[in-house]
């Protein structure tokens, strides 16, 4: 019981981290994609109960979080003007 409780908390915090980091993309299209894809992926995997599958998904989310963090930095180094619909 406590194991599932723990993983539940981990999944929730990963979800929040991914959304928070994803929203930092300076490029509009990447930002929107990161937010949309994160929400859809968590919705899609909501009903995962299988332990190994859950661990696999958590690992993947962690990797993606790291990618987003690095790519947000690169994006900020070479920023472009905002898109016309952002203004």
């Amino acid at each position: 019981m406590s194991a599932t409780h723990q993983s539940r908390r981990l999944v929730l915090s990963l979800y929040k981290d991914l959304l928070r980091e994803g929203s930092k993309f300076s490029a509009y299209n990447f930002r929107m994609y990161a937010l949309r894809r994160t929400r859809d992926a968590f919705k899609e995997n909501k009903s995962i109960t299988d332990g190994t599958l859950l661990q696999k998904s958590i690992l993947e989310a962690k990797e993606n979080l790291e990618i987003i963090r690095r790519q947000v930095i690169i994006g900020h180094l070479y920023q472009a003007d905002k898109l016309i619909i952002e203004k």
């Binding site: 993309f25 299209n29 790519q71 994006g75 898109l83 016309i84 952002e86």
Partner: peptide, 16 residues
């Protein structure tokens, strides 16, 4: 501001 990009057949952006 920059134009929107709707020309995915010409080329696509590099996925981060």
């Amino acid at each position: 501001g920059r134009p929107l990009y709707l020309d995915a057949q010409a080329t696509t952006s590099l996925d981060p």
